[in-house]
Structure formats: structure tokens, C-alpha cells
């Protein structure tokens, strides 16, 4: 380890560790690029891929992101973008949960849905994508339907859970498990031009209140479907919330719900 560190420090440009050197170090010292990233961040070196983050996040913040584990429940419209953005942000461990395979009707909006991935498990595609985007990030694929039976196990050790589900009933199960396990939950939902965003900490029940009646029915999405842009917008808002929660910065959308209307371009806060 001391040898690796000395080598990294010698190669660093200022406090930046270039990708080529990160890769060389992994080969030379027979460790993973993930191990190299960990060693770099713990010793004051910033992998150069994060240099445009640094005026927003200090090195300790970047290390905190790397040490974080975030569960993304659902790998469709929202989930695809959420996973992409978490991986680029440098969140070290992502648990991706979805039982489905890609189908043709996913390709109008789902980031990971490409012709070569048709018929492929969504979580397998997510793992391949993250490996290409940021190999220092570990994606743990869970190809199961999330529910009360397996939720606790899936969320084990996670610092935040991100709702990218397409079922209100399962969302409420996710909210219950997050409550029991004391995990903050970022809720997002979309339909057509519209969406909602809400963050809920343990002890808060905004989401349960929001869906207090008729939780078994689906919403507006059933007849509106979803275009390419709405998932990208709401997913990005969710990742911003995750980032703030992990770093304990800024003001999350707590005890309020943001209603997003891209048709009339209106963002309205609902008190919860």
C-alpha cells in the first residue's frame, strides 16, 4: 500500500490523479481501479475525472461520495438516468434493483435501452454501463421485484434509497422499509409532461400521506405514457437530492412535494 501511494504521489499532477495513471497503478500493483481510487481519495489525491466537481465538493466530500452506498429501485426511465448520474458523480456503490428485461417500447426514453440490449436484464445492462462510465464504481445488480419480502435485505447498508419505481403500491412498501431501516428516501414519479419530487427522512410520512387514498391504482402515466425528457428531468432532481443527503448540504425537498409541469413549465411546491 505504501508503495502504491508513493507511486501515485510521484505520478500526480499537483493533487490530480490522471486516469491513465490510475489504470497503470491498478495493473502494476495488481489491485482494482476502485482500490486505487480509494487510496488516492484517502490520501489527498483527486482522480482527475472529478476535477470539475471540485469547486462544489471538496476532497473529503468526494471521498464521502465514494464511500457511499445508494439503492436505486427501478432501472427504467428514471433509474437509467439516476444510475448514470450517480456513477459520474462518484458514488462508490450503487445497488440497482429491477426484475425486467429491456423491451422495444422502452427505447423512447430509457437511457440503457438500446437495440443491442433488447431482451437483456435491465440490471445487467446497468452493470455494464457503469463499468464503462466509471469503473471505480461498483454496481450491485439485483434482478428481483422489490417488496416487503426482500426489501430489508436489498437496502442493507444503504445510505439513501432512490425511488424509480412504476408502482404506487410498491413505493409505499419501499417507504415503510426505509422507515424501519432508518434510510432517507428520495421519491420521484413521472407521467407525460408531469412529475413529482419529494424527499423523506425516517420519521416523516409525507409519501404515505400523499398516496393516502387509492394507492393500489396507477396514475396519469397509464394513458399519458412518458417521453424522453421527463424522466431525465426528474431523475436529475432526484440525484441532486441524493447528493445533498449524502453530503449533508443544501436544502432537500422535505415535508413538501415539488410538482413539475413541463407543459406549462411550472414548478409548484405542495406542503405535506
Amino acid at each position: 500500500m505504501a508503495e502504491l501511494l508513493a507511486w501515485l504521489k510521484e505520478r500526480a499532477k499537483g493533487d490530480l490523479l490522471l486516469w491513465a495513471d490510475q489504470l497503470s497503478a491498478a495493473n502494476r500493483f495488481k489491485v482494482s481501479v476502485r482500490d486505487v481510487e480509494n487510496a488516492a481519495l484517502e490520501n489527498g489525491l483527486l482522480p482527475a475525472r472529478y476535477q470539475r466537481n471540485r469547486n462544489m465538493f471538496c476532497l473529503d466530500d468526494q471521498l464521502k461520495l465514494f464511500k457511499s452506498k445508494v439503492a436505486v429501485i427501478g432501472c427504467g426511465g428514471l433509474g437509467g438516468y439516476i444510475i448514470e448520474e450517480l456513477a459520474r458523480l462518484g458514488v462508490g456503490t450503487i445497488v440497482a434493483v429491477d426484475p425486467d428485461v429491456f423491451e422495444e417500447h422502452n427505447m423512447n426514453r430509457q437511457l440503457l435501452a438500446t437495440p443491442d440490449f433488447l431482451g437483456i436484464k435491465k440490471v445487467a445492462a446497468a452493470a455494464r454501463r457503469v463499468d464503462r462510465v466509471n469503473p471505480a464504481v461498483e454496481l450491485l445488480p439485483v434482478g428481483l421485484a422489490f417488496g416487503m419480502d426482500n426489501g430489508k435485505r436489498i437496502l442493507e447498508g444503504c445510505h439513501v434509497a432512490v425511488d424509480a419505481l412504476d408502482s404506487i403500491a410498491v413505493r409505499l412498501e419501499l417507504a415503510e422499509i426505509c422507515q424501519e431501516e432508518s434510510i432517507p428516501l428520495v421519491h420521484g414519479a413521472i407521467a407525460g409532461w408531469y412529475g413529482y419530487l419529494m424527499t423523506q427522512y425516517p420519521g416523516e410520512r409525507s409519501l404515505q400521506k400523499f398516496f393516502a387514498h387509492n394507492s393500489q391504482e396507477s396514475g396519469l402515466e397509464k394513458h399519458l405514457g412518458n417521453p424522453s425528457f421527463t424522466p431525465a428531468v426528474v431523475a436529475s432532481l432526484e440525484v441532486a437530492e441524493v447528493c445533498k443527503i449524502l453530503l449533508n448540504q443544501g436544502t432537500p425537498t422535505r415535508r413538501r412535494c415539488l410538482s413539475i409541469d413541463l407543459y406549462d413549465m411550472e414548478f409548484v411546491e405542495i406542503e405535506c
Binding site: G74, G76, G77, L78, G79, D163, A164, L165, D166, S167, I168, R171, G188, A189, I190, A191, Y194, G195, Y196, F211, N214, E217, S218, G219, L220, E221, N226, P231, S259, I270
Partner: peptide
């Protein structure tokens, strides 16, 4: 009265 529709897609 303000009314917001239910949205559940992802």
C-alpha cells in the same frame, strides 16, 4: 381548492 393528479410512473 387546488387539485393535483396522481402520478406513479418511473
Amino acid at each position: 381548492v387546488s387539485l393535483f393528479p396522481k402520478v406513479g410512473g418511473g
